[in-house]
Amino acid sequence: MIRFEQVGKRYPNGHVGLHELSFRVRRGEFLFVTGHSGAGKSTLLRLLLAMERPTSGKLLLAGQDLSTISNAQIPFLRRQIGVVFQNHQLLFDRTVFNNVALPLQILGLSKPEIAKRVDSALERVALSDKADLYPGDLSTGQQQRVGIARAIVHRPALLLADEPTGNLDPRLAAEIMGVFEDINRLGTSVLIASHDLALIARMRHRMLTLQRGRLIGDGEAGV
């Protein structure tokens, strides 16, 4: 699914975001990327989302080389990915339904199909009764679940999450992680960047540890 081969990212100001990173992620795998602030977690996610390009090495996602992918192809690559942000990135002038429907509207699906899939995604995150509300009417945990519903509504092959439980209390964080595991059980690869080691340890999934842009650990969490 994902293949990093000696991937490096150096910014114009000389800062090295990632240093010759190499690892693979299988289809349907669940893994965490952890490390302190500035370790390179967000850079790694930005590379996978083609928001940035590697400055060296080769990065393959679903068979496509992200080092050489054209700008015109990027939207179509992103349609295979779902992304969850720490700050949700919800649109507060749209209802929950319309926030979740956005990826499907972009895909050009019919209205009945959109309604069906949005209902299904909201049901999966237990927000079926909130579809007509606006994000501002929801709690932080519910907003995060709307973000997850939007990320999975188009049935992506890969789900990326950047500190998805960063603003949540431990109970809500565990609940959100449960949602991610449910999604993973349906066959979606899940990659979560988080520095919450206690939470990660309880999950017992593969964990990559980054430090100053280098991969210093690759194994099962909590072992």
């Binding site: 939207p75 349609r79 990135q89 990826p103």
Partner: peptide, 16 residues
């Protein structure tokens, strides 16, 4: 701005 960034991240093309 946020809306545009989200649209781009969920696969919206430039023309969209």
């Amino acid at each position: 701005r946020t809306e545009i960034e989200v649209i781009k991240l969920v696969g919206g093309t430039d023309s969209y």
